[in-house]
């Protein structure tokens, strides 16, 4: 369980990326964040593991009463996997080496200088096998396709033994067929292991299909929060400010929304 209490993010240039938001994410639930670019999806996701600092309010997690406390933040981060749009792997490192970086949160100080233990390597290989890449374990990541790289990203999150996975547009850079496979892999793993997930997406169709709950954001504020069945035409209009071209992951958002909220 993780929740935000009046969490607000105002960037130094005055842009209010996230208006005071209070949300609770239940254990094991697959939540999808929808909204146009600049609506605050990334900011909300990154505030859930402290990559973005709140300017007001707080985030409360299972192992951390307040993410502003460094030790609590670290405890929280090591149980929180993150999957990125650009996968954020080290291209010249092997799949195994990249996945092992997911274990760093469990190491402290000088232990870091020693190699990873055999147990951790086995665990990493288990994660690699789970995303279907075991025959590529010793291949350099920059030799893999986009979809394979994103699977490595998922394995890196998995090896953390997470209670929560945050995914920031994990399939936005993939072709539709690959996107579908990668997303259902992520969804299947989260459901099987009871991992809560907060996933930002562009595609309404995917959101309706995979989400237990959809949170719609516009201009940094929550404008919809409910089950996919409640997301009708009017609600979609409220999120996007216009009728989105469904099933088009490249759909550019209406211009008036891209400028964001300059306070």
């Amino acid at each position: 369980m993780i929740r935000t209490e009046q969490a607000e993010v105002v960037y130094p240039n005055g842009t209010r990326a996230l208006a005071a938001t209070s949300l609770t994410f239940a254990p094991g639930a697959f939540t999808v964040l929808l909204g146009p670019s600049g609506a605050g999806k990334s900011t909300l996701l990154r505030s859930l593991n402290g990559l973005v600092r709140l300017t007001a309010g707080k985030v409360v997690a299972e192992e951390a009463d307040d993410l502003r406390e460094p030790h609590a933040l670290r405890r929280h981060r090591r149980r929180t996997g993150m999957v990125f749009q650009q996968h954020q792997l080290i291209g010249r490192a092997t799949v195994l080496a990249n996945v092992l970086t997911g274990r760093l949160g469990y190491h402290s100080g000088l232990r870091t200088l020693l190699p990873f233990s055999a147990t951790e390597k086995r665990r990493a290989l288990d994660a690699v096998a789970r995303v279907g890449l075991i025959e590529y374990a010793l291949r350099r990541c920059d030799q893999l396709s986009g979809g394979q790289q994103q699977r490595v990203g998922i394995a890196r999150a998995l090896v953390q033994e997470p209670a929560l996975i945050l995914a920031d547009e994990p399939v936005a850079s993939l072709d539709p067929a690959t996107a579908e496979r990668v997303l259902s892999l992520l969804h299947g793993i989260c459901k099987a292991d009871g991992i809560a997930a907060v996933v930002s997406l562009h595609q309404l169709e995917f959101a309706r299909r995979f989400a237990d709950r959809i949170v719609g954001l516009a201009k940094g504020a929550v404008v919809f929060d409910g089950s996919p069945s409640k997301l009708g035409r009017a609600e979609t209009l409220r999120i996007y400010g216009a009728e989105p071209a469904d099933n088009d992951e490249d759909s550019e958002e209406p211009l008036q929304l891209k400028t964001g909220t300059h306070a």
């Binding site: 981060r77 954020q88 490192a93 469990y106 402290s108």
Partner: peptide
């Protein structure tokens, strides 16, 4: 590339670990 550094931080890596496992490699 700063992106693997952010990924390591997100996994709970310390400043020192980010250097040893994301910058130096």
């Amino acid at each position: 590339d700063p992106r693997p550094l952010e990924a390591a931080r997100a996994a709970g890596a310390s400043r020192f670990q980010v250097i040893t496992h994301a910058v130096l490699p």
